[in-house]
Design a binder for these strands. Structure first.
Lengths: 354, 354
DNA sequence: CTGAAAGCGCTTACAG
DNA sequence: CTGAAAGCGCTTACAG
């Protein structure tokens, strides 16, 4: 049982253990770390005291002395953005395997942008404050987790520790881990093509988003291979949003000819199309076939199950941590920009066309 | 511009700043902390060097010396469980206001339980490892974030630092912050009653879950006030799950009489009921009125919009941090068990019955 | 096998 | 106004 003074909030030190055991602090340290020959008798005496007192060594002091913290800074733009938690989980997974720990710095960008601040300057200030803490805590390296996949430029420049960007990247120096946008869209389009679809509409994310363009490239590549060119009026801006998309696709149903295939660049928009099809008393996939992107929970509800794309979020965090530790431990110093593949999740929302 | 040696990975120390400025390290420390009278000339000389070198003070050394870290340990059972990120965000919000920082320890319980380990022992081991790190890092206190709302017993006993439980609690010593289950269900039931509903069915979560029982109490309280008793066959186990619920409610539609009100204890089950109603070519709310719980994203899609209950997740984190800091700073030492109120989110899924 | 001592990078009385 | 020195809790050559 831990003793009274421990429970009361006092913290044991090596010195006190040494006194109680009647040995030097060096000896206690050796017992604790097992890096010296210690007689069984002494060891047991010390171990007994350690157990009795519930002693835990002061990592601050240890790290200061050893000049090594086994601490990684995780700087996230917003922890509430859904993918962030999974990336953190991947980071933690490898951290646990390797005996590292994470200090989390949450920029809380989402709510700050909403609060109408001039977010550019706030952003830089916040990042610098976060870096002061992370680097001041002597982290061995930093993983930066973006809320959108985009080029961050030089926000983290002049840092003397290794940095890996995750769910974003930089055109300056720094490694990154992202997922593939173009390739799964190419494959998804091929699925439609193989099932005989020739008349496509696409629901785009917003214009400034890089994934919007990458996903479009994948779709267009597959289509151009069979000589199809998307019609202008079949490229519809849905802004990633359910309600916006329902309105945006409504005019489709006034047309004499409906496209047979609607590819939405995320699941919210895919579900919106499905609901709008239902609202017009048509069926999915019989009248219109649909695909999404993100493998969001909503695709598991309702019917038909929407074809979608699963992003390797946890793996991205794991890989980012792996790359960071490679840099920390000096084995690989060059920057790498990794793009992990996505997985197509099958559904029942794409029919075969005669 | 930071100099070459800084960018190369070397870390500046007070001593080096002092040498470059031709003053003592004490003086540099005073300039940095602004806690002594320093001549303008000296101050400017030192500040110039600090800026030039991009010096950041070593928080490890500082904390060790001052015996104060301004660091809070956040021990979460699983960061990927949806509410966790919002609670962390609330913690970070107050941390930012008060100049505290968080070290995140993620037990990753979800995936470990799935891997079929004997999770009781693993769990205790993992918690102890996490505590070694958190307490070893000399955190000022710990916030424990549960993945389910339940009694944790003595998992964190014999800790010499303040602890606040969030989204869970303990029957032993320790403060907690939770949300109200019973009260919003009571109010939701009243909404049905005020609109003339008298024939209720309830979709329950699983039997071992405390919120299941608390939510049921709220419903039954409101019903009993008007002399209604739920029929056994109208209490349906949906296990919190969409697909399970669709199957579980199917027999309802064979009955001569459908209940007019179906209260689901979460949104997944509410949506499942809605979809099953549609599958039977009936309408919501005309044929059946529905309510959910959780204010999940899915309730914003499709139609009608489901009445639901919003839990104060971010506020819970904020409040937990507030209570922890009160303990840390010695103002309030007694344990408190706080239950924050929920908000009813109106929808269009409850009709008025004649 | 064990201990005295230096030192990690800071802060803070204290002296001048 | 400024500096020399002690000390926070550890680790690690080094000596014996």
């Amino acid at each position: 049982m831990p003793e009274k003074n421990v429970r009361a909030g006092r913290t044991m030190t090596l010195k006190e253990i040494a006194e109680r055991a009647g040995v030097s602090i060096a000896t206690v340290s050796y017992v604790l770390n097992g890096n010296a020959q210690i007689s069984d008798e002494t060891r047991q005496k010390v171990e007994k005291i350690i157990k009795e007192t519930g002693y835990r060594s002061n990592i601050l002091a240890k790290s200061l002395r050893k000049n090594k913290t086994s601490l990684v800074g995780v700087l996230v733009e917003d922890v509430t953005v859904w993918h962030t938690a999974y990336i953190i989980d991947g980071i933690n997974k490898l951290a646990e395997e390797k005996g590292y720990h994470t200090i989390l710095s949450n920029l809380r960008l989402l709510s700050k942008i909403e609060s109408q601040f001039e977010h550019i300057s706030i952003f830089k200030d916040d990042i610098n404050k976060a870096l002061d803490v992370l680097l001041g805590m002597q982290v061995d390296g930093i993983i930066y987790v973006g809320m959108h996949d985009r080029d961050l430029g030089d926000v983290l420049k002049d840092i003397s520790k290794p940095v890996v960007y995750c769910y974003c990247y930089t055109s300056n120096e720094g490694s990154s881990v992202r997922y593939s946008n173009k390739e799964p869209c190419y494959r998804m389009t091929k699925i439609f093509l193989e099932r005989g679809h020739r008349d496509f509409a696409v629901l785009k994310g917003n214009e400034q988003s890089e994934p919007t363009h990458l996903r479009m490239q994948g779709i267009e590549k597959a289509l151009s291979e069979v000589g199809i060119q998307l019609k202008k009026e079949n490229i519809i801006e849905g802004n990633w949003d359910y309600h916006r998309t329902r309105e945006a696709v409504r005019p489709l149903f006034e047309r004499p000819h409906l496209p047979t295939a609607v590819m939405a660049m995320n699941d919210d928009m895919a579900i919106a199309v499905r609901d709008e099809v239902f609202a017009h008393e048509l069926r999915v996939p019989e009248d219109i076939s649909i695909s999404g992107f993100d493998n969001a929970d909503i695709t598991y509800y309702g019917s038909p199950k929407i074809y979608t794309v699963d992003r390797p979020l946890q793996e991205m965090g794991y890989k980012a941590m792996e790359m960071l530790l490679d840099k920390v431990n000096g084995s690989k110093q060059e920057d790498m920009n990794i793009v992990l593949p996505c997985k197509i999740i099958e559904g029942t929302s794409i029919r075969r066309v005669e």
